[in-house]
Simulated assay, not measured.
Amino acid sequence: MRYQVELSHVKWKKCMQMQMAMHCAPVLAGLKPSNAVTLDYIDSKELIQSLAGSDIKCGLIYSGNGKCLWLLYREQQVNQYLMDSENQRFLKHCGYSSFQIQNILYTLKNRYRLYKAGQADFPHELGLILGYPLCDVIGFIKNNGQNCLYC
């Protein structure tokens, strides 16, 4: 893939806009319901301001060590995806009792905090919230992140 070789030679300026473009282009373009991006803490205000007036929302998942993990999402698309009965069954198995994005973010934030503190396993349901097919999320869990067909 030639573009990957060319991208590796570019001297990227590390800024919030570049991070969003690199990690969140599919959600910004309306092709995916959500994406996650890690930004420096000082970029959080700029992130919130840059999304003002758009239909893209952001939810803080975790902050620590000067970094913030944000979920950028289109609420209607995420809620629609999470209405699938199999997705709800999986989320219920993970300890979720509500399937509205605001309630899910609250629970995910707590589960991610426990993970970062070394008190719980990684909350793999994040993959489902990011719009990955349930079979891929389950396969990732069963294979411990190994043996994927495509990266």
Rank of each mutant, 00 (worst) to 15 (best):
Y81H: 14
R111T: 06
R89K: 08
I101F: 03
N65G: 02
L82A: 00
H23G: 01
V27D: 05
I48E: 14
K109N: 11
M22T: 00
D84F: 03
Q76I: 02
L71A: 11
Y73Q: 10
I42F: 11
Q102G: 03
L47W: 09
L108E: 04
L69I: 14
L72S: 13
D40T: 05
L31R: 13
G64V: 07
G59S: 13
I101P: 05
W12T: 00
L91F: 06
L39Y: 02
S34E: 05
K11M: 04
T107V: 12
G53A: 12
L31A: 08
Q76L: 04
M83E: 11
S44H: 08
L28E: 05
L108P: 05
N103C: 10
L108H: 08
C94M: 11
N103Y: 07
E46H: 08
Q102I: 09
R89P: 00
G59C: 06
K32I: 00
D84H: 07
Q80C: 10
S50A: 15
C68I: 05
S54L: 15
M16N: 00
K57H: 14
G66A: 04
R89C: 01
V37P: 05
M16V: 08
Y41F: 09
K109S: 15
G59E: 09
L72R: 10
Y73E: 03
S63I: 07
G64I: 10
N87L: 05
V37N: 02
I101H: 08
N103A: 10
L28M: 14
Y81N: 12
E46R: 14
L69P: 09
A36I: 15
S98N: 04
